[in-house]
Simulated assay, not measured.
Amino acid sequence: MGILSRTSYVIRSKINSVLNRAEDPTETLDYSYEQMRDQLQEVKRGIADLTTQKKRLEMQKKRLEENVEKHNEQARTAVQQDREDLARRALEKKKTKMNQIEDLERQISELQSQQDSLIDQKDELQNRIEEFRTKKETMKARHEAAKASSTVSEAMTATGEEFEDVGRAIERAEEQTEDMEARAAALDELQDSGAFEDVMSDQDQIDRELEELSTDSGVEAELETLKSEMGGGAEPEPEPEPESVDEDDLEEIETDVDNAEIDSELEELQEEENS
C-alpha cells in the first residue's frame, strides 16, 4: 500500500470515527423513513402521469371510433346516391382511422401494463415502508430505553464524569471534616490538661499554683473565724511560755533552717526545669 493510499485510508477511518460518534441512530432512522416516503410519492406521481397519458389516448381513440362510424354512414349514403367515388373516399378515411385506432390500442395496452407494474411496485414499496416504520419505532424505543438504562447505571455506579467529581468532592469534605473534628478534640484535651497557658495572662504554672494555695489559705482562715464566732465567748487557750534554748541547740536549729531553705530552693529550680 502506497503512502497516498495509506493516507487516504487513515483520513477515511478518522472521518468515519467522527461520524459514528456524531450520528444519532434515531435521527438516522427518521431520515431513512422520510427518504422512503419521498420515493413512494415519486412512484405515485409517476403512476398519475402515466394514467393521465393513457386517458388522453383513450379519449383520442374514442374520437377516432366516432369518425369511423361517421365514415360508415357517409359510405352508405354515397352508395344510395350512386356516388361510388364518394363512398370509396369515405371508406379510405375509415380505413385510416381504423389503423390509428389499432395503434392507439397498442399504446394504451402498453401504458396499462406499465401502470399495473408501477401500482404493484407502489404497493410493495408502501408495505416495506410500513414495515420499516414499525421497526423504526421499535428501534427508537429500544435505543431510548438503552440510553436511559445507561444513564441510570452511570448514576448508580458513579462512573460518569460528573458523578466522579461529586464523589471526589464528598471524599474531600469528609476528610476535612474529620481533620477539624480531630483538631478540636486535641485542643479540648490539651485545654483540660492545662498544657495551654492563657496568652492574655502573665502568670506561669508556679504563679497559678501559688494563687491556688493562697486561696486555700484564705478559705481556711475564714473557716477558723466562723468557728470562733460560733464558739461564743470561749476563752482562748494560754500561749505556752517559750522554753530556754541553749547555744548548741540554737546552732542546730540554724543549721536545720539553712538546710531546709536550700532544699526548698532546689525543689523550686527543679520545678522550673520541669515546667
Rank of each mutant, 00 (worst) to 15 (best):
I47H: 01
T159E: 05
D202T: 09
E65D: 13
E254V: 15
K61T: 00
E241M: 08
D248L: 03
L125Y: 00
V79Y: 02
D49T: 11
D246Q: 07
S214V: 13
S275Q: 08
E224M: 10
Q81H: 08
K61M: 10
D263G: 03
E271V: 06
V79K: 02
L104H: 00
E243R: 09
E92K: 06
E42D: 14
D188N: 07
E251V: 08
L269K: 07
V199F: 05
D188M: 05
S113W: 06
N67S: 10
D38E: 13
R21T: 11
R12A: 14
E23D: 15
Q176R: 11
R21A: 00
Q81K: 10
A195P: 01
D30E: 11
R37C: 02
E268A: 04
I129R: 01
S264G: 10
S17H: 14
L29K: 03
E254C: 11
A155Y: 09
M139Y: 08
K97M: 08
S153T: 13
E69Q: 14
K55S: 13
V10Q: 09
S109L: 05
I11Q: 10
T52I: 04
T28H: 12
E102P: 07
Q112M: 07
D103L: 08
I15N: 13
I253G: 00
D103A: 12
M156F: 08
R56D: 05
A173M: 06
N99K: 12
V10N: 01
L91W: 00
K55H: 08
G167Y: 06
Q114M: 03
D38R: 14
N20M: 07
A260L: 12
E131N: 15
Q121C: 05
S8C: 12
T177W: 00
T225I: 09
E161W: 02
E267W: 07
S32F: 07
M36L: 14
I108T: 04
K136D: 00
M139C: 08
Q270N: 06
E144C: 04
T77Q: 02
E265I: 12
L250P: 00
E222Q: 13
K44M: 12
V219Q: 09
R45E: 15
R208A: 03
E209F: 14
A182Q: 14
G2C: 07
S32A: 13
E27L: 12
E265S: 10
A185M: 04
K70T: 00
E27G: 01
V219N: 11
L91M: 12
A195L: 06
E66Y: 11
S214Q: 14
Q205W: 15
Q80C: 08
E272C: 00
K95W: 08
R83C: 03
A87T: 00
S264W: 09
D248F: 10
L4W: 12
L64C: 02
V257W: 10
R21E: 04
E229G: 01
S5V: 03
S13M: 15
S244A: 12
N127R: 15
G218S: 10
E247F: 09
L187H: 11
H71T: 03
A148Y: 02
E212K: 14
E265V: 04
L118G: 02
E181I: 04
D120G: 05
E220K: 14
P238C: 10
